[in-house]
Every structure is written in C-alpha cells, then in structure tokens.
Amino acid sequence: MSVSKQYLKSRPVCKVTFVVSAAEANEVVVVGDFNEWNPEATALKKLKNGNFKGTCEIPKDNSYEFRYIIDGNYTNEQEADGFQWNDFAGTENAILYV
C-alpha cells in the first residue's frame, strides 16, 4: 500500500494517489473525511498487476482520517502520515496530511 501526493500550484488542492496491493480482492475503495466516508465515492481501479489504484483531489492545508475497504473489510494504510483513535469504530484510522 502507498499514498503519493502532488501539490498543484494553480489550485489549493493536492492530487493524492492511493495504491493498494490486493491481487485476490474484487473491490477496494478509500473512505475518509475528504469524501464523507461514502464507500461509493472513491473506488480504486484494479490494475493488471493486481494492485488497485485511484487518484482524488483533496483540499490542502488540512489533515484527514481515512481507511480502505477491501472486499467489505476495513484496513489502514500502513505508511500513513499518522494514526488517530476513533471511538465510534473502536479502532485507529489512518491520517493523511496535505
């Protein structure tokens, strides 16, 4: 799994690319503060090499909690910028700083 960031000079957003290695999975989505935790908002596309990849523009100068849903199971980005405890879910969420 990985997250890469590309800051745009022309607009106050960051293009964030999410890559998840999940060759056996059928569906991977990313949910978080930036898409109102909507599992239909940011589906990642399965590549021929088995990875799932997707890019979204996220307003910069903020931090966002997020998680992946891989075939219905929530998981964190291991290389996240940080982690934050979530009492509602009873687990940690990954943090993205942009």
Rank of each mutant, 00 (worst) to 15 (best):
M1L: 11
V3M: 14
S4Q: 14
S4I: 15
K5T: 12
Y7I: 14
Y7K: 06
L8W: 02
L8R: 06
L8I: 11
K9I: 05
P12R: 08
P12M: 02
P12K: 07
C14K: 00
C14P: 00
K15T: 11
F18H: 13
F18Q: 07
V20I: 12
A22H: 04
A23K: 12
E24G: 05
A25C: 07
N26Y: 02
N26H: 09
N26L: 06
V29D: 03
V30N: 09
V30C: 14
V30S: 11
V31D: 04
V31R: 05
G32D: 10
D33G: 15
D33L: 08
F34Q: 11
F34I: 13
F34N: 05
F34P: 04
F34W: 01
N35R: 07
E36T: 10
N38L: 03
P39V: 15
P39L: 11
E40C: 03
T42F: 14
T42S: 15
A43L: 10
A43M: 10
L44T: 07
K45R: 11
L47V: 04
G50H: 04
N51R: 10
N51S: 12
N51T: 15
N51K: 14
F52A: 03
K53E: 15
G54E: 09
G54H: 08
G54R: 11
T55S: 15
C56R: 10
C56S: 13
E57W: 01
I58T: 13
I58A: 07
P59D: 07
K60E: 06
K60T: 10
K60N: 12
D61C: 04
D61A: 08
S63W: 02
Y64T: 08
Y64V: 04
Y64H: 08
E65Y: 00
E65V: 01
R67P: 02
I69Y: 00
I69S: 07
I69M: 10
D71H: 01
D71M: 04
G72L: 04
G72C: 07
N73S: 14
Y74P: 00
Y74F: 03
T75R: 09
T75V: 14
N76A: 14
E77F: 01
Q78R: 10
Q78P: 02
E79M: 14
A80W: 06
D81I: 02
D81P: 04
D81E: 06
D81F: 00
F83E: 03
Q84D: 05
Q84R: 07
Q84C: 05
N86T: 06
D87V: 03
D87T: 06
D87W: 01
F88P: 02
A89F: 06
E92V: 01
N93L: 07
A94G: 13
I95H: 00
I95C: 03
L96R: 01
L96Y: 01
L96S: 04
Y97Q: 08
V98R: 00
V98H: 01
V98A: 06
